[in-house]
Design a protein around this nucleic acid. Structure first.
Lengths: 194, 194
DNA sequence: GTCTATATCTAGATAGAC
DNA sequence: GTCTATCTAGATATAGAC
């Protein structure tokens, strides 16, 4: 055979990885199939050997992305007590705001997901619930799960929508401090001052 | 003259009103000029008598939208003590989640704003700061301004991204309760139980 | 599996008649 | 100011050669 058995799977994964970053930076609908394929050194025609449609790529992409995110944010039984605090600090960082291609999908593709079909939205819902349950349990506040995720997503949307770097930092810092006050000390997003 | 002096201004405003709703529902880039004009009973060619480009419409649209929102959310000197609480209740409602065309631009167009030019983002920043300052002052917590806006925007993005109606309501309710606990009683989003 | 070429469609924008 | 017609560019998707 002209191509190794693993070739197709590798190409597919490269395409997913590359598309993920591009979509998070510039939007999914906004980027063409040609550009996505070019980013991995191929031409547009080859796309349809891997996905039946551009929409199918979107679904696979969101699924992978949400799986990764929720695994990272939910943590596991070995995660330290301040796991949530660490997540909040990383999420609500200037680095995250400045690098959408490396971060969470929701601030960038949230609106596109909202307009997508039921399968995509069910996938997203399941992944979100995983993080929500973990965070509610870890903080001891059943409402904190959803509220913290909402705070994170919203703060990133705002931070990226404003023009000045100063305001961007203020939004993120205010959100971090607000959560510090609202959560029991052991889960605060910054180390306690003594 | 074939058209009254006020005709152009009226048409422009009708176009803005209609485009606003359409863009908030389906995204701005996703809707074509022909469709926007058809929604007010005109054809695509007439668009360019009102705006030099589609991008110019986006800027005008976001500006008007943010002005309206911030005026409503910031309130004025006659607003009651529970003004912030009322805003939170309305914003974090199922009605708002179900009707993007009637609601805030940020959950739907936030990502498109983030990709827009400096003028748009400066406009958005100024309007956001107005609400932020008002809310910080009214709640007595300097961090609450940004944090509450972030919580609102994020909760709406999440609520619209999930599939089930049940989860959608849970997200909104959890956010409302979380803010109840985090804010001084007089600003809580629900009337105090006694 | 990937390429080039192409069919088809839609978009933003312009030109000229009314 | 609005219309129809059109230019140009870019998109998704397909066909057939390698």
């Amino acid at each position: 055979m002209r191509y190794a058995k693993t070739h197709k799977e590798e190409t597919r994964q490269k395409l997913l990885d590359s598309s993920r970053a591009i979509a998070k930076k510039g939007g999914f609908k906004a980027t063409g199939v040609d550009a996505l394929m070019a980013s991995i050194g191929l031409t547009g025609g080859a796309f349809y050997s891997h996905f039946p449609s551009k929409q199918a790529l979107f679904e696979a992409l969101v699924q992978q992305e949400m799986d990764n995110s929720s695994a990272m944010l939910a943590g596991d039984k070995d995660s330290p007590d301040n796991h949530v605090a660490k997540c909040l600090r990383d999420y609500l960082s200037s680095f995250h705001a400045a690098n959408p291609e490396l971060g969470c999908v929701l601030p960038t593709l949230g609106a596109e997901i909202a307009q997508a079909g039921p399968e995509v939205r069910s996938t997203v819902e399941a992944a979100l619930k995983r993080t929500q349950k973990s965070w509610s349990q870890r903080t001891g506040d059943p409402d904190a799960g959803w509220a913290l995720i909402a705070q994170c997503v919203g703060a990133l949307v705002l931070a990226r929508a404003v023009e000045s770097e100063r305001t961007r930092k203020e939004i993120l810092a205010a959100s971090r401090r607000f959560l510090d006050k609202a959560l029991p000390a052991s889960h605060a997003s910054a180390p306690p001052t003594r």
